[in-house]
Amino acid sequence: MANVKRSPWLLHYDGSSCNGCDIEVLASLTPVYDAERFGVMNTGDPMQADIFLITGGVNTQNKDTVKQLYDQMPRPKVVVAVGVCACTGGIFKDCYNILGGADTVIPVDIYVPGCAARPQAIIDGIVQAVELFEQRSKEHDEMVRNQKKGSEVA
């Protein structure tokens, strides 16, 4: 019956942003947009998250944090960069401390542009991320099966 597509849990990290996108991400969970109807939950715990939503760029101080959060998430996982800051660095691009978008430290799968990104766009990004998540999950199952086979042979 169910597949993983129905239960994407989000981890939301706010990098070097103006908090504009941050608020829009939360807005997409409010009654007007209600992302929970797709099974989306905002967990705040990387150990339990499937989709990493990052708003804001990466600077010299938060680059390790972003990397660590990504590493702590169990496979399969998908990364969504929300807002131009997270995509490229945005209006902060030329600041002395900004390294650039989220993809300077972790592999980003989906880019949601906008300054600030609208809740509709964010939900659209999440829906696309969910598709990708399902595909990754299948690949992950495949890998686990192969590993099991491998260990039986050995």
Binding site: M1, A2, V4, R6, S7, W9, P31, D34, E36, R37, F38, G39, M41, M47, Q48, D50, Q72, P74, R75, P76, S137, H140, D141
Partner: peptide
Amino acid sequence: ARMQRRVGPPILQPFYDVKKLFKKQVI
């Protein structure tokens, strides 16, 4: 969800969640 005037997840959502959790990589 209805009390907060949202549509809310499907009733079977907890089962979807648990099923997914069993499929994830174990750290």
